[in-house]
Structure formats: structure tokens, C-alpha cells
Lab assay of single mutants.
Amino acid sequence: MLDDRARMEAAKKEKVEQILAEFQLQEEDLKKVMRRMQKEMDRGLRLETHEEASVKMLPTYVRSTPEGSEVGDFLSLDLGGTNFRVMLVKVGEGEEGQWSVKTKHQMYSIPEDAMTGTAEMLFDYISECISDFLDKHQMKHKKLPLGFTFSFPVRHEDIDKGILLNWTKGFKASGAEGNNVVGLLRDAIKRRGDFEMDVVAMVNDTVATMISCYYEDHQCEVGMIVGTGCNACYMEEMQNVELVEGDEGRMCVNTEWGAFGDSGELDEFLLEYDRLVDESSANPGQQLYEKLIGGKYMGELVRLVLLRLVDENLLFHGEASEQLRTRGAFETRFVSQVESDTGDRKQIYNILSTLGLRPSTTDCDIVRRACESVSTRAAHMCSAGLAGVINRMRESRSEDVMRITVGVDGSVYKLHPSFKERFHASVRRLTPSCEITFIESEEGSGRGAALVSAVACKKACMLGQ
């Protein structure tokens, strides 16, 4: 009897593995994704193909990295998701002549009506938060230079001027797309009239992360975010950046690689679950690469896999709870928690219980395998993109072996128990001629924006502006 049951459990697990095998990517698959990513990057950089390229390769006008001589107080704003952060950054000489960066910050959550109302409502709310922060720190009387981390696709015309191309991540505030974001912020500050600010720089969160990590390690020339969304930036040779005049030196390019796949480059790798996630998203047909990796989508992918296993009578005796059938019910943090389970399955059992399920031991094991399959594919897909960037940098610099540091931020990278190990191992397999160091950014977005502002202020002083 026991043997029969054991055989049935083994057969069930084997069927589960057959279904989950769809998520496995072979090294040849990853090399294919990497080569296609490089081709799209090239198209994004070139003037004649930029418009139709899915990977936009947006110039950021960040050319210099901090040298350690900029000092002063800077205000930093960070808008990239449902939370908005205001930070005071003091850049100065530390002990023994070292450079020191001290920060104080406060988080504000953005109400739904500000995210989806008008641009005026959104930026009025942001300036209200700045006003509140300055009151708390008794700094209303000071006109501070301000660095703005704005983590949406922007076409820069200068370091302090950028046109919002399109909202992502659930934002829909009308009247912002096609307009200068810094102008919208300046107008809102003017409307309030109770404080003055000098907006000197606007950067993407990947750029802010790279600059913040450069402060720790001067070989950091790539910034990457794996959180709600997924994106990367890197220092490109100016001669390859056709959208900006000049051939000397390097400029940081914001790849906006989340949109890779929007022209069909990933079609052969998309599964039924991916198509369902895409169809029910706020932007169907867009940001397809990001939807395979980002935390906004990972939990939902797992939920759809679990429903398939229920329908195949391989999980929960073929019956799903009402909660499990509800879109968004299986949160991405559950994926991390399930994979963090120590082996007694308590954590998995508790999560499934909150979803109205009474799982068996085998159910718990199957749910864990589903989570591992989805998150491992995410790590491997992400590795193909980064390997594409790094191999490109090595080739354009004609280096036999390139040493490089990548600064990384984002909740999936930082909080998932195995993502970074799987990701690092896969990147290294795909970049055999590179020695890569990964560092995690601390308060990256805010500190990085302030350091970019410090560079901009120093330049302005040198130019006598």
C-alpha cells in the first residue's frame, strides 16, 4: 500500500517536472537572447534605426563620474514606483581627507489618484512632500541643488532636461508624456511658492545606482535594477552614441532593455503563462523582457503555473481556492519566502493557508518547484541581457580580458534567497573573457542622484555659470 502511494507521488512529481521543464533555458538559448539583445542595442544607438529599435539606448548626458572633490548639501528625489523618497545628502571631506556622503531620508507613498490623475496632481503632491521634508529638517530658507531620480523612459536633451516617452509600472498621470519632466517639477514648486529649489540633474535609477557604486569602486561602469521592473545602464564610447554629437570619451546610456521583445525577438521563448500575464497587464505587448524578470510579474506567473497544475490534477487534489483564482493573489514576496523555507515546509504551508488552501507535504514541495522554475528562468533571462552589455563593452574597448564592476539594486536581487547566485553564475558562463565584480548599492537611487548633481554643480562652477 505504502509502495503504491510512494509510486503515485513519484509519478505525480515526474509529471510536474515535465510541465515545469518549459521554463528551462539551455545555454544556447541564452546565447541567442544575448546576441539578439546586442543587435537591438546597436539599432538603438544608431541614428537611422533608433526610432524602430525596441531597446532605445537613451543617452543620459552623464559623462563624468564623481571624483571626490564636490562638497555641499544636496536634496535628492526618487520616483520610480508607488513609494517616493526625499533625501538630504551631505557631501563633504571625511576623516583623513576621505570623501564622505551622509544621508537623511523619508519615504512617502503615492496615492492612487496622483498616479493615475493628471501630471499637475502628481507633481503638486511631490512638491508637497518636499515642503514637508524641508519643514522637518528646518531647511526651507536654503535654496538647495536638487537631483531627481526618475525611473521611467526619458529622452534627455541635457542633464536637466528630459522628455517622458511613456509611463510604465502602473503610472498613468495624463499630460506628462511628451513633456519635460524637470519643467513639470519646477512648475509645481513655483505653484507652491513656499520654498526654492535648483533642479540641476535628472537621472534614471540605473544611472543613480551606477554612480553610487562608483563611489565604492571606481571600476563600476554598469548599473542595473532588478526590482519591480528590470533595466540597466553602462558607459558607452561616445563615438557609438549617434544621437549625441561628439566622439570623445564616454557617456552613460540608459538601455531601457525592459522593452526588448516588443518587436518579436522573444516570441519563441514566451510561454502561455507569459501571454496571460501580458494580456492582463496595463501595457499589453510592451516591456516583454521586463515581464519575464521583474517583481511586478513574478508572483503572478507562479500563480498561473499553480492553476495549470491544479487543472492537471497534480496539486491540491485538483481544487483551487477562490483566493488562488484571484489575479495578483500570489505576491512576489511569497516566491522569495517559499524558496527561503528551511525544509520543514512550515513557511510554505503558512503562505498557502493564507490563500485558503490546506496543502499536503507533496503540495508544498511542488509549489516550491514552481517558484524555483519561474525565478530561475528570470535570473537566466536577466543574465543574457547583462552578458550582452558586458561583452559589447569588452569588444568596443578591444580588451582581451576586461575587469568590470556592476552596481545592482532592486528588491528581487536583494531579497530573493537564490536569485543573485543563479544570476551571477549564468552571467559568468556567458562572459568567459571578463572578470566581473557585483556590488549592491546602498540607498543607491538617492545618493547617486545627489552625486550626479554634485558633478553638475562642479561643472557649472568651472564653466562660470
Rank of each mutant, 00 (worst) to 15 (best):
L184G: 06
E196M: 12
Y108A: 02
G448M: 12
E196V: 09
G229K: 02
Q24L: 04
T149C: 15
Q239I: 15
G223W: 00
K420E: 02
D341V: 05
V406T: 01
T255I: 04
Q337P: 03
M462H: 13
F84Y: 05
T431G: 01
A449H: 07
L20C: 14
R392Q: 13
F23T: 00
I163N: 14
Q323P: 12
S373I: 14
E28S: 12
V427Q: 03
G68K: 09
P145N: 09
I293W: 00
L271Y: 01
C461T: 10
D42P: 01
G246W: 04
P417R: 07
E52R: 09
T255F: 11
I439R: 10
F150S: 12
N204K: 01
L144Q: 02
D194P: 07
R333L: 07
E221H: 11
M37C: 03
T168Y: 15
E48A: 09
M238Y: 11
K346Q: 09
E372Y: 03
K143R: 08
I293C: 11
M41V: 05
V389Y: 05
Y125H: 08
R36F: 10
T118D: 06
T82C: 12
S64F: 14
T228L: 14
K420M: 05
G388V: 11
V71E: 12
G328F: 07
I293Q: 05
A387Q: 02
L146Y: 08
S383L: 00
N204H: 14
G97Q: 15
L355Q: 09
C252I: 13
R191K: 12
R36N: 11
V200S: 03
M115W: 11
I189H: 10
G80L: 13
K414G: 01
G295Q: 13
L243V: 06
C213S: 11
K90T: 11
R377L: 00
V408C: 12
L386F: 04
R333G: 09
G175T: 10
D262Q: 14
G162A: 09
Y349D: 15
A378H: 02
L165T: 14
V241L: 08
N166F: 12
D267R: 03
C230P: 01
I211P: 01
L309H: 03
A21K: 07
K15D: 09
L301R: 05
D278K: 00
V455I: 13
I211R: 01
D158T: 08
D194W: 07
K161V: 09
S131T: 05
A208K: 02
S433W: 07
S373F: 05
S411F: 14
A379F: 04
V401A: 14
T255P: 06
D158N: 14
G448D: 06
N166W: 07
G80R: 04
M238W: 02
M235P: 01
Q337G: 09
E93Q: 07
L357V: 08
L2W: 05
L144I: 07
L30N: 02
D29Y: 01
L184N: 11
A387N: 02
E93I: 10
V181T: 07
S426L: 11
A449N: 08
Y234M: 02
T209E: 04
C129A: 13
A320M: 06
A460K: 05
E221V: 05
L146W: 15
V244A: 06
A456Q: 10
Q323K: 15
G81C: 14
E120V: 11
M57A: 00
R85F: 09
L463D: 11
N166A: 12
C364D: 01
A425S: 07
E421M: 11
E70I: 05
I126V: 06
S127Q: 00
Y413A: 04
D194T: 05
A232L: 13
V452T: 13
Q219K: 11
E242I: 03
V335C: 10
A232D: 04
N180Q: 03
A329N: 04
V427I: 15
Y214M: 11
G44A: 00
E242H: 13
I130L: 09
S360A: 06
D217E: 07
V89C: 05
L79P: 00
M393S: 02
G356T: 09
W257A: 00
D78T: 15
D311G: 05
A53C: 08
R428D: 07
L88R: 03
D267K: 04
E93Y: 15
L266R: 00
M8E: 15
E40K: 02
N350Q: 05
R345Y: 15
G343S: 05
G261K: 00
L288C: 15
L314N: 02
K136R: 12
F148D: 02
G183I: 06
K39R: 09
T332W: 12
R368D: 02
M202R: 06
V62Q: 01
E322H: 04
H156S: 10
G448R: 08
L386I: 09
G68A: 09
G448W: 09
E196W: 04
L266T: 01
E268G: 04
Y273K: 01
E312W: 07
R5E: 14
E322M: 02
N391T: 08
M57H: 02
N350P: 02
E70C: 04
I211Y: 14
K90I: 06
E120R: 07
A114Q: 11
E245S: 12
V222N: 00
I225L: 06
P153F: 12
N313E: 14
M139G: 05
V86R: 02
A119F: 13
L30E: 11
H156W: 13
K15E: 04
L288G: 13
E157W: 13
N83E: 14
E157H: 11
M8N: 11
M87D: 04
T49K: 06
R333T: 02
E120T: 01
L75I: 03
A259G: 12
M393D: 00
V367L: 11
C233V: 07
G229V: 05
G94T: 06
E48P: 07
C252Q: 01
K169A: 06
K458V: 04
T437A: 10
I19E: 08
H380P: 01
N254C: 07
A320G: 15
V182K: 04
R428Y: 09
A425P: 02
E70G: 12
L146Q: 02
L134F: 03
P145F: 04
G246C: 06
P359Q: 03
E312V: 06
G175I: 14
S445P: 15
G97I: 04
Q219H: 15
S375P: 01
R5W: 04
V277A: 09
T437Q: 12
G410R: 01
G117T: 04
H218C: 10
A454P: 03
M462P: 11
L47N: 10
L357G: 03
G249E: 01
D217N: 14
I404P: 02
Q26A: 06
H416L: 11
E440P: 10
L185E: 03
L25Q: 05
S353H: 11
L58S: 06
F152Y: 11
L355E: 03
T332Y: 03
G356N: 08
E442R: 04
V412P: 03
A259I: 06
K420T: 05
A114Y: 08
E242S: 08
E443H: 02
F150I: 07
R447D: 09
V452P: 02
V253T: 04
K56E: 01
